[in-house]
Computed example of a mutant assay.
Amino acid sequence: MKHKGWKYYGKKTGFYFVLFIILIYLLFPFYWTVNSSLKSEAQLQMTPTTFVPRDPHTGAVSPTFNNYRVVFQNKQFVLGLFNSTIVAASTTMLALVTGSFAAFALGKLKFRGRKPALYIILAMTMFPQVTVLAGLYAVINALNLSARISMILSYMIFTLPFTTWVMTSFFKGLPTALMESAKVDGATPFQTFYKILLPLTAPALVTTGLLAFIASWNEYLFALTFTSIDPTARTVPVAIAYFTGAVARQEPFGEIMAAAVVVTVPIVLLVLFFQKRIVAGLTAGAVKG
């Protein structure tokens, strides 16, 4: 009995140790970003580096918010926040609306070619962005679209297939009896989709919508390409890449870290606000009955 107890506590200790290592691995980069954003230029150049902002002369803890002040005084960064919000929100809404309709058809309606369509949608997510960039840029130029519209349409390339694929599995899991009952009551297929089935997929909508928003918010390659001739349309990742120091010949490391914190905070708040919906969406269908 004693040996069994030691074995149990040994496993439990090992589990918490591994969990602690994973937490450190995941959280340390964000902590270091915050730590660096609170340091002045002189503090960033201290050797050895410090785990908290310290005065170079006295060693006392001395954080500064000057980097954040400089970041919010940067008009390109503030405009980038606005552009990213517009582009990411528009992309997410379009992906959810279009993906929900497609997922309803693929998950609940019977028609020829349904299974090949699903595999084609899945295959679309496997192409690297750089492989379609040149052709896509040529099409955008031919259509003479604005940079923001170009980004929204191009982001749909990777958000729409993912949204459709994930939502299809949720629609498949809904009881067919719901559709049959609605049909008996005289509801049209659209009314069945909009009033009965779609509200039941709310956890899936939140989960896929949040992931689509994060992907659009963080996207860099398409944004850099399509805004090359229109600097006013730059999103946050591109605006950060074009950061220059507040002083001549300065490497704006502290400002970049402060901007990274500012950009990350909205995503963290969204995850915390929708965490119950996200967990429900991720675990829906895991248990049957």
Rank of each mutant, 00 (worst) to 15 (best):
F101M: 15
R148F: 08
A241F: 06
F273V: 10
L26A: 08
S146R: 09
F253L: 15
F222G: 03
Q275Y: 04
P48Y: 09
K276R: 15
N35A: 12
V71W: 02
G173A: 11
T50V: 01
L178E: 07
N144V: 00
G209D: 14
Q275V: 01
R249H: 12
F28R: 01
A233W: 09
T188L: 14
W32M: 09
Y155H: 15
N74P: 02
F190K: 09
F253N: 11
L270H: 02
T227M: 10
T168D: 00
T98D: 01
Y137Q: 05
F17P: 05
L153E: 06
P161S: 07
T64H: 05
A286N: 10
L79D: 12
S169D: 10
I214V: 15
F127Q: 03
Y31G: 03
N83Y: 08
V34F: 07
R112Q: 06
F72W: 04
F193I: 07
T58K: 13
Q275W: 02
D230M: 07
K288N: 04
Y194I: 13
K7M: 11
F82K: 13
P203L: 02
L272R: 04
F162W: 11
N66D: 12
G173Q: 05
A286W: 06
A123D: 07
M156K: 07
I214W: 03
V268M: 11
F162L: 11
F226H: 04
L122N: 03
F222A: 10
A204I: 02
E255A: 10
M1R: 08
M124D: 05
T98G: 15
L282T: 10
F111T: 02
V184Y: 10
N83V: 12
P116S: 07
K11R: 14
F111I: 05
R277I: 08
F51M: 10
L178P: 06
E180A: 06
L211K: 12
G281K: 10
L269Y: 05
T49M: 05
T207C: 12
T91H: 05
R277K: 15
F253A: 14
E255T: 10
W6P: 01
A260E: 00
F20N: 11
G173H: 01
A105G: 12
Y25E: 02
A223F: 04
V139R: 04
D185C: 12
P116W: 05
T64I: 02
R69L: 09
Q76V: 06
A259R: 00
R148E: 14
T98E: 03
G254M: 12
V139C: 09
M126V: 03
K276A: 12
F162T: 08
Q76H: 06
L145Y: 12
T227N: 11
D230G: 07
P161A: 05
S37M: 02
S36N: 13
V87W: 00
N74A: 01
L282P: 07
I196G: 04
K172G: 01
F82C: 05
V263T: 07
K39L: 01
V61D: 00
N67F: 02
Y25R: 01
I21D: 15
S146N: 14
T207A: 13
L133C: 00
S100A: 14
F213W: 15
